[in-house]
């Protein structure tokens, strides 16, 4: 069971600098925080959207979810952490230097 606020954990996952699709992050968090309902999934995804709108993540690629990996016929988004996200993460909420 995850013990840090969800957005911290999301930023932490992105801190390796790699690009991730939203469904990869969402399913990881769902497992860690035991949030397996559709509602849990959507609320984690909204956290990612909030981080992106706050300028900490950048939406770099989209594709149509044809197979229903996440939500069939919806858009999938790929994100990467921004410099601001790294700074923000380290000065406020992360145990990261």
């Amino acid at each position: 069971m995850g013990n840090r606020p969800i957005k911290f954990r999301v930023l932490e996952l992105f801190l390796d600098g790699k690009e991730y699709w939203n469904y990869e992050i969402v399913s990881k968090i769902q497992a860690e925080y035991n949030m397996n309902s559709a509602y849990g999934r959507d609320s984690i995804n909204f956290d990612i959207i909030e981080l992106a709108s706050g300028g900490m993540l950048k939406d770099i690629e989209q594709k149509v979810d044809e197979k229903g990996i996440y939500k069939k016929d919806f858009l999938l988004h790929k994100y990467v952490i921004t410099d601001f996200g790294k700074i923000r993460g380290s000065d406020a909420c992360m145990r990261y230097a």
Partner: peptide, 21 residues
């Protein structure tokens, strides 16, 4: 209603980096 008590507790515990603000 939103089932966020868990998140509330997790955020409260991060006093130094976060909840102090």
């Amino acid at each position: 209603t939103l089932g966020k008590f868990g998140e509330l507790k997790r955020t409260l515990k991060e006093f130094h980096p976060c909840s102090k603000w």
